[in-house]
Every structure is written in structure tokens, then in C-alpha cells.
Design a protein around this nucleic acid. Structure first.
Lengths: 244, 244
DNA sequence: CCCCGCTATTTGTCAAACAAATTAACAATA
DNA sequence: TATTGTTAATTTGTTTGACAAATAGCGGGG
């Protein structure tokens, strides 16, 4: 493992970029240990706090983790799709919070992508997928009067749908669409009592998927997302009215 | 801006999480200045290097930037969709590099999502979108004998298609699918000389979008992605054969 | 008005020291 | 022999203090 001397500008960033490059290239594999902080400081010709700042950059990107003790050190993280997905969901919420992304765009994207997932799920689903969907639906029925738990089960249902698509990259990207939209859908579930409608829509979707009926599955998604969009518009109108 | 005292475990991470939360909630707006490192150290009851380590975490996520001098300090970054997208593409390539994601899954995802984008582009495109597509296509024609530039123009064409969909979240997510697949598609462009086929496929797609013909646009995507998939299988077979 | 030098401010980096967590090795005991 | 307890060594985690680098603003001179 060879690192080149670094120039005088933003040392931690440059060091982090070099280490990141080595990881991305596979020069250091997942779960492998990097040299000690002291050794890295020697190799890069900088101080140990500078190395630590660089390592914090990498830690923030979940590329490494650290541990104390004689068998401790800094280790390369095995990339975790769920972690990356949660980061993506968080970034999406940030974009919404800072008005770089509108709720309408998110809904449109959800309408399109969830149809896609439903179609793939109807085509590809296994028995375990159906069980997961049923289980999430049962939780929704159970918690119909407890909004917080209902929301959680709702996300589980949609997550199970995405998992049933059988495509790992879609699983990742749908974090933006499902978990990223969670604050909005939570707000709606707390505000409006039509949870039985949500449940019956999910039941119809589950039936279509069980039957392998791609067209019906897609149609059910259109219905659900249109319901969600209508509720969201209603909430926005009410907010505007209470502010005028 | 209130921060609570932090417990004794992984201080920089906890501090970074609190600041990130304040940013996501909008308590600190884009381009606003955070307190000085010295002031933050006082408020959190920790040392300045610990604050610096926390800030490096936030910098790694492009949430903040720093500047020296009397009007310097730490500023909240305006979230940039392209930066987030490039990060997503990079994470996707890492997943592929470490075999957590297969090229086949990426191709499947591309087939589905690019059809979606083509459909939306046919419906939503503006004159500027058509110009961008034409321009990218002209670059591809120009560089048909220069693989590197051809690849760059190819990505520009696909990027223009995604932009023509008019949905910001899709723009973000498609970084995983277009730019994330770039090493693979570059390899194919370098290896196989059927660049004129790619160009004619892009021409047919552009015509369909100009005509607002959603069905034809989707069909063109199916053709293109199937060509890409076939070339990829060919490359894998050749690799396997040269290893046996 | 423009240019230059100086000062103050803030981040960037380094050095040194000590604390905290952890593992491995060794000793004692049953 | 197996188990438990203790100690030393190792690595990361945090603090203190000092100085360097970059920068903006202000004042003075041409």
C-alpha cells in the first residue's frame, strides 16, 4: 500500500481521497485493517491529528470503522446496502427540507417507480415475499388505532414490496422514495383517519401480486399514490388556509 | 441554536449528528454561518480538535464548507443535486466492485428506469431538452473514432434524456443507473466497434421524444439496453474463455 | 480613487501528553 | 488441566497549547 506525499492544501481531504481510492480500487479489501494512525502519519508525512481528520471523513461515508486495543485499528467497512439506502433517504429529506425537491416531484417519482416495483414483484415474487407482505399488512390491521406503529408497518409493507422486486439496486434507490417520503406520509397518517382505506388498497395489491397479475398490481399502485397525493394536497390547502 | 451536553462515547460523531439535525430541520439555513470552532467547543463542552473532527464528518457529506479569515468560518452548503448524484454513482460502483450488486441487476434496473424516463421525456420535453439531446448526439457522431470522448458524449446523451423527464428526484436516482454503470459501458465502447449502431438507436429515440410518442420512446430504450446487455454477456464470455 | 501595508480573525496543522478501551499473556487456584 | 484474575502493551480518543496560513477590513499615502 503506497501513499504519495501530499501538498499543502486541505491535507485531510487529500489523504481521505487517496485512502478512498485505494478502497474503491480494491487495494484494501473489506474488513482489512489499515496501518495505525501513527504509521499513516509517518507515511503521509503529516501529524496524527491530520490523519484523524482524514479518517473522520471516511467514517462519515461509512467506508471505515475504528476500534481500540491491541487488535484494534481502522478497518475497511463491508458496504451495506441498507446503510447506503438510509443515507440516501436522509439526503432526500434534506433536499425537501431546503426546498431543492418538491413533494409533488417525490410523489410523481413514487408513482412511477412503485409501479415498476409492483410489476417486477408480480413477476418475480417468492413465497417468502408474500409472507413478508402479509405480515406487514397484519401489523397495519393490528395498529389501525395507533398512528405511530401504523406508519412503521406501512413502511414495512412498502419495503416488502420493493424487496419482492428482487433487484438490489432498486432496493437501494427506493429508500429515497419510501423512507425519504416518510415524514410526509407520517404527517398524513396522523392527520387523516382513512387508515382502513390504506389497508384495503394494500390487500388488493397483495392479491394482484400473489396472482402474478402485473397489470392489476400497477393499477393498485396508481390508486394508492393518487390517494396519497390527494391527501397531501388537502393538507397543503388546510395549511394555506390557516395561514391566511 | 441549542446543543445538549454529549456523553462520553464517540464525541465527534454525536456532535456531527446534532449539527446535521439542526441543518436538516432548517434551524440553520443554506449559506448561513455556524459559530466559530472555539465557540462550538465551548457550547458542547469539548476541545477544539474534537469539534474539528465532527466538522470533518459533515464536510465529507458536503453539508458544510470552511473558510479562513475574519469573515471566514464554517458555512452550511446549499445542497447540490449533482454532488449528491455523483456520490450515489460512486457508492453504486463500490457495491459493484465488492460484488454486492451484479451487473445484471444494474442492467435490469436501467432497462426499467430508463423506459420510465423516456416515457416522461416524451410527455414533458421542452425545446431546450431536444437541443441538449441533439447536441450530445452530434458529439457522439463527431467522436465516433475516439472512444474516450465518445463515452463522455454517450453519458451526456443519457443525462440529457433524464433531464428531459423533468423530475428532480429521478435526476438524482439515475446517477446510480447512468453514471454508476459508466465503467461497464466504457469497457464495452472500447472493446466493441458498433458505435454507429448506438448512434442510430439514439437517433430513433430522439425522434420518438420529439414526436411525443411515449410508446416508441420506451421501445427504443428496450432495444438499446438489450444491445448493451448482449455486449456485456459477450465480454463476460470472452473473459471466462480467456481464463480457462 | 487606487494601492499597499498592517492588524485582527478564523481556520489549518503540529507536538506532546494523558485517558479509555481492549486483548493477550502470565500467574494463581481449584 | 481448566478457569479466573491481574497486568502490561497497544491502539484509538481527547485535551492543551502553540504556531502557520489565508483573508478581510481599515488606514495612510500617492
Amino acid at each position: 500500500m503506497e501513499f504519495s506525499p501530499v501538498s499543502q492544501q486541505d491535507l485531510p481531504r487529500q489523504i481521505a481521497d487517496q485512502i478512498r481510492q485505494a478502497i474503491t480500487e480494491g487495494s484494501i479489501g473489506a474488513d482489512e485493517r489499515l496501518p495505525t494512525e501513527e504509521e499513516l502519519a509517518k507515511r503521509f508525512g503529516v501529524s496524527r491529528p491530520t490523519i484523524r481528520e482524514a479518517l473522520k471523513r471516511l467514517a462519515a461515508q461509512n467506508l471505515i470503522r475504528s476500534k481500540r486495543g491491541p487488535s484494534g485499528g481502522t478497518f475497511v467497512n463491508r458496504p451495506d446496502l441498507v446503510e447506503l439506502g438510509e443515507e440516501l433517504a436522509s439526503s432526500t429529506r434534506l433536499l425537501v427540507g431546503l426546498n431543492s425537491l418538491s413533494p409533488e416531484e417525490m410523489i410523481q417519482c413514487r408513482l412511477e417507480m412503485e409501479q415498476l416495483c409492483a410489476g417486477l414483484a408480480a413477476r418475480n415474487r417468492a413465497e417468502a415475499d408474500l409472507s413478508a407482505l402479509e405480515s406487514a399488512l397484519a401489523q397495519q390491521r393490528r395498529f389501525i388505532d395507533q398512528p405511530e406503529q401504523f406508519c412503521r408497518a406501512d413502511v414495512c409493507f412498502h419495503r416488502a414490496l420493493v424487496d419482492a422486486s428482487g433487484n438490489a439496486l432498486l432496493k437501494l434507490l427506493m429508500f429515497a422514495v419510501i423512507e425519504g417520503l416518510q415524514p410526509v406520509s407520517n404527517m398524513i397518517v396522523f392527520r387523516y383517519p382513512e387508515r382502513d382505506l390504506i389497508i384495503s388498497q394494500h390487500e388488493a395489491l397483495l392479491s394482484a401480486i400473489r396472482a402474478g397479475d402485473e397489470t392489476a398490481a400497477r393499477e393498485q399502485i396508481v390508486r394508492q399514490v393518487e390517494t396519497l397525493a390527494a391527501q397531501m394536497r388537502r393538507a397543503q390547502d388546510e395549511s394555506r388556509r390557516s395561514r391566511a
